[in-house]
Design a protein around this nucleic acid. Sequence first.
DNA 1: GTCTATACAGCGATAGAC
DNA 2: GTCTATCGCTGTATAGAC
Lengths: 203, 203
Amino acid sequence: MSPRPAPEARRAGRRPGDPDDTRRAILDAARRAFAASGFDRATIRAIAADAGVDPASVMHHFGNKRGLFVAAHELPDDPVALFSQIAAVPLSERGHAAALTYLRLFAGESSAGLSLLRAAASDEHAAATLREFIEHAILTVGVKILARPEQDGELRLTLLATHLMGIAVARQVLGVRPLATCDLETLARAVAPAVQHYIDPPG
Amino acid sequence: MSPRPAPEARRAGRRPGDPDDTRRAILDAARRAFAASGFDRATIRAIAADAGVDPASVMHHFGNKRGLFVAAHELPDDPVALFSQIAAVPLSERGHAAALTYLRLFAGESSAGLSLLRAAASDEHAAATLREFIEHAILTVGVKILARPEQDGELRLTLLATHLMGIAVARQVLGVRPLATCDLETLARAVAPAVQHYIDPPG
DNA sequence: GTCTATACAGCGATAGAC
DNA sequence: GTCTATCGCTGTATAGAC
């Protein structure tokens, strides 16, 4: 996260034009572009321009467009920590906490989640990455937030995740009101009961 | 829907090569292509090949790619009838009925809903069309299925719609299991309680 | 109305000088 | 490592013969 400590003993303070700064600038621009336009419409040229580098430099660092996409979507956050945080709050308030956490996964204009979601619509590789994240990370790690995981836990958790993904699509891809003009906190409060139902079904 | 009655008195039974058959064949192929690949990756050449016509013929009939897309997504079904059907069942069973109806909007490999949804990920025009459908058709017509429309009716109905849209995305775009391998009826039954909550909130 | 042929543009990717 | 120049491909769209 912070300007990483030198592996051995870095010669001096790094200056603009440093290789790592270039990589980071490209990756940031790539996330913005992929999130805004999807995989196909995002262009190497535009990403390079946004990052202030030459298009050929992008190819040099990441090989090809897919390599750039993959590099831009390596998960920076530990999903375990994410769900532990939900499990830490009392059972009766987990609906709200879960809603907020899931919504944040797709929020932000350079969100890797949103970028992945948008790209997945027309790109099978991106779809597979997101599918695996939902099937594995959300399921294997997420069950700890459920009241009774043994009762259809997998299905409940999947429906919970897809509910909030649907809201993210409506909010940030389609721009459906009143969702798009609603802050996350208010939204999370409105969805909380339905989410709570999946976490702790009354039956 | 059926092979439309002749406006005046059609000369004879229509044969392959008939202009209307050509149009229909192109539109069917277009829906399949757009639903499978999204707006960008679907190509005029492939659509023409699938329909068994010349690419130039497609351009002749629809002007350009966007014209074809728009023509392929003119809503064939009356949304009023759609929601009236839900409102007809008893209040306690509307969750299930609504879930099934909404899910069907996006089901099927040449579904206009799915096609529109996929295209919307990277195309602002498609996104606008779908957004308007949700904001207007679903909201203005759909409120009749709610128990108490005066209490946050707009928001509840939007969340209801986006919940099921999210499931459709997970099912048909991402292929998330167990959703993808689940029949609509079973799925509708699992979602029914949450949907029912939006239709008839206990509070 | 339907075809062949082609113009025109934008993309990813490569080669090679510096 | 970075840049210029360019290749090769694919796509939409058009012109004009039939």
